[in-house]
Each structure stands twice: as structure tokens, then as C-alpha cells.
Design a protein around this nucleic acid. Sequence first.
DNA 1: CATTTTTAGTAAGGCGGCTAATTATTAGCC
DNA 2: GGCTAATAATTAGCCGCCTTACTAAAAATG
Lengths: 180, 180
Amino acid sequence: MQRLVLKELPRYECLVEASKQFPDLEPAACEAFMHLIRASEEVMRVMNAHFAAHNITQGRFLVMMLLLEKTGDCPRPTTPAELADLASVSRATVTGLLDSLERDGFVRRVPDPTDRRQMSVSLTPKGQSFMHDILPDHFRLLTRLMGNLSDNEQKTLSRLLTKVSMQAASLSNGGGTTPA
Amino acid sequence: MQRLVLKELPRYECLVEASKQFPDLEPAACEAFMHLIRASEEVMRVMNAHFAAHNITQGRFLVMMLLLEKTGDCPRPTTPAELADLASVSRATVTGLLDSLERDGFVRRVPDPTDRRQMSVSLTPKGQSFMHDILPDHFRLLTRLMGNLSDNEQKTLSRLLTKVSMQAASLSNGGGTTPA
DNA sequence: CATTTTTAGTAAGGCGGCTAATTATTAGCC
DNA sequence: GGCTAATAATTAGCCGCCTTACTAAAAATG
């Protein structure tokens, strides 16, 4: 399920031209923004085709990924609320995803004995083996998606994107979307 | 309308650890991928809040943006099929968006006199002035979103993301999602 | 103990897709 | 002119992934 994105981004000269009509338009920033949105959509288009080939969707995949037994000290959620928090969505959304995954036998929900409001969520053996089946391909694919970039470029990209994320987060929390 | 994304990305050391369990996992590529998805979602979260404050949604905004009178020689679509092509979605999707925009008085559809299969689509004066009202804020916001980056970093980001897009496009067309 | 907070889930609604089918029209060929 | 194939926009039906408001029950708080 993709979002609308421009097939061809405007050339830089077009942006400069448009900035005469719209003085608030900053060409380099606008271009970077559009490239960010387009690249992510294109990458997700490829990933979603891969998911579809394995009869899984993005949302379900992420939930299962979060529930997957992992080595090391990475946080692993066990309740719907934790899943919702880690995935930055509402609990209602998680309920829907878990309903669907449980129906298909990938996850199991059991009431928590220590707090009866809570459910404890885990992957079933079927869910575990499903993930172990598709993850090699998944990782290979995303390595190929980044394959045009050198190791150094990948690191640079991550660094720059972290800066963008932080700025977006501060604009979200600062609430100041428009100084008017 | 946002998609699930990890709130906190795994630390690089976690990825290295996981690559022992999953040998196909390449830590730098994986990290760059996750940063790409997260940054774009965070940025779009901010943009969507801005759209919501103006009672417009992303899809409708893009359609209106495509229809907007622009200086210079930027392509401007006039039929639903052209809109669909430029936005990389199906014509059925465009029909839905146009229905909604027409209902609200932002666009007008008239049958094309030269080919009676076609409709000609344009912004109404209401649509034009709506866009002229919100675009200054819109451009200011995306400039701020990229504000953490120097001009040079913005250019670098665009360049790297172009590389990613091209790779994604070639994987899409090549059809070789998994060499297996 | 009374009140407030928290949990998972439900209901209702929305956005933005998609495919397949349909209807009317056009293009190209004989 | 008649016919076939292609095309345009739309409709119907479905999907994925959200959201908010609300509920009942349980837990926390003072």
C-alpha cells in the first residue's frame, strides 16, 4: 500500500523558478525533502512486493519482528501496549494487527497472571519459523537496496537522516508548526 | 495517516550482534534503510499535522499541487490519466481523490471536446487561492525540517537518495527480488 | 474506601490504495 | 461503412493501516 509520490521530481531549475513566485521556497531544502519522500516510497514499494510474495504485510511484519526472539539486549515487547509504544501507533491499531496474526496462527495471546488487565503476546513456533524463513531474503534485499552506496556513503546517509529525524521530532514536540 | 515505524532504532552494536544470527544482515545497509524509513515517516508526520491544520490531506494536496498553475516549463497534467501517471497510482485512485476535491469545490471536471472519453481537470479559483494561502507555510515548514542540515549536506542527501531511488527502481523493473 | 489511572478491546470512521468489470468512445484496418 | 481492439473514466468490492472515543475491568493512589 503505497502513497502518492511524484514520478519525476522537478528539476532544480524549476524549483529556482518557482521560488520567484513563492519566496518561502528554498530550492535545496525542497529538493532534499522530495528526494527523501520519493526514495522511501520507492524502497518500500520494493519491500512490499517482497512481503506480498511471502503473504505478509508491512504492519504484520513489523509486529512479528518486534516479537522475535533476539540475541543481545535489544528490547522485546510482551504486551500490546509495549508493541504500540515501540511502533508509535495506537493500541487499537495493534489490536487489529494481533487479531489478524493470531487468526493465522503466528502469535499467541495469553492473559497475564500478575495483572489481569494485560495480555502477554508472543510468537508461536509457526510465527518463529516463518520469520526465520523470510529474514535471510529480507536482509539480502535491503542490502541490495543500499547496494549503490559505498559503506561510507551508507554511514553518511544514516548520519544525515538522523539529523532530519531529530529536527522533525523537535518540530513535533515543540508544536510550533507555523510561527505565522 | 502514518505507518508503523520503530520508535527507537536498534543500536549499531545490536545489528552487529544480530548479524551473527542472520549472516545475510549487513549492519550498515540495515541501519541506513531503517534511518531512511524512520526519517521519512517522521517528516511526513509533521507535514500531515500541518495539512490537517489546513483541513487537507496528503493525497488531495499532491493532486492540487500537480494541477497548480506554475511558472516555467514544468509539466502540468490536465486529465485523470495524466494525474495518475505523474503520481504513480491507478486512475481509480485519482477518480476517488478528484471526487472528493470536486465535492469540496477545489477542482472542476469538464468533458474534453476533442476526445469524449476524456475529462479535463483544473483547479477552481477556490482551489487556486487555497493553495496560494497554504503554500508559504508549507514551504517554510519543509525548509525548517531540513534546517538541521547545511546547504551542502542537503545537496549530499539529495545525491545519496537519488542513488537509492535508482537502485530501487532497477530492482522493481529487473523483477529480481530474490536470486534464491 | 473513594477516586483516578491504566489495560485491551470495540465501534465508528477515515485515507489511500488496489483489481476487475463496465460503459462509452476512439483508432485503425479492411 | 463495419468491425475489432484499445482506451478513458468510473464503479464495485476489497484491503491495510490508521485514528478517536468509549467501555468494562483491574490496578494504583491518597
